[in-house]
Amino acid sequence: MDMSGSQRIEASREKVWEGLNNPEVLKQCIPGCETIEQVSPTEMTAKAVLKIGPVKASFNGKVTLSDLDPPNGYTISGEGQGGVAGFAKGGATVRLEADGEDATILHYEAKADVGGKIAQLGARLIDGTAKKLAGDFFEKFGQAISPKPEGEEAPAEPEKKGWFGRKK
């Protein structure tokens, strides 16, 4: 599976770089991430629970950063084992481009391979899930590192309604 894209983030390139290298920020943003630990300046271990179609699995993985070019980008590669559900391995090239003083364009090109029960689900389901997870990550990442305007609070949750528009 190959995937590429760009995301505009309302933060300086230096702040985006710091966020991409901060395990606490990454833990908040990676869908299903339960733990992430920095083992060395270029290695992290992580545990995430993901649901891909009917298969829910807990993955234990290792992530390695290489080709570091602060604050312009790096290459990230990783491998995760999901027990009987299978495995996932892949990598991405991340490039940061300043967009004025207060915004950054994050470009990425990623490749991934899966095996085991997950691979039996079919490419369309896996690709769709991967794109959704990437979208969720970038949305949360942008929110985590973008400065909030003064006096602005988080938006209130919409009122929940049940059948026929009645309040719950």
Rank of each mutant, 00 (worst) to 15 (best):
M1C: 09
M1L: 14
G5K: 07
S6I: 01
R8A: 12
R8Y: 02
R8N: 13
S12A: 11
L20M: 12
N21F: 02
N22P: 01
V25M: 04
V25I: 14
Q28S: 15
C29W: 06
I30Q: 09
E34K: 14
E34Y: 01
E34D: 14
I36K: 05
V49N: 15
V49Y: 03
I52Q: 03
G53F: 01
P54I: 02
P54N: 03
N60K: 14
V63R: 10
V63S: 04
L65I: 14
P70I: 01
P71R: 07
Y74G: 05
Y74I: 02
S77A: 14
E79Q: 07
E79A: 11
G80A: 13
G80R: 01
Q81V: 01
Q81N: 13
V84G: 09
V84N: 15
A85C: 03
A85K: 07
G86T: 09
F87W: 06
A88D: 04
G90I: 04
A92S: 15
T93A: 12
G100N: 08
A103G: 11
T104Y: 09
H107R: 08
H107P: 00
Y108T: 00
E109F: 00
D113Q: 13
G115F: 07
G116M: 03
I118C: 05
A119S: 14
R124A: 12
K131I: 04
L133N: 04
L133P: 08
A134K: 02
G135T: 08
G142Y: 03
G142S: 12
S146A: 12
P147R: 08
P147V: 07
K148Q: 11
K148E: 07
E150K: 14
A154V: 05
E157K: 10
G165S: 09
G165W: 10
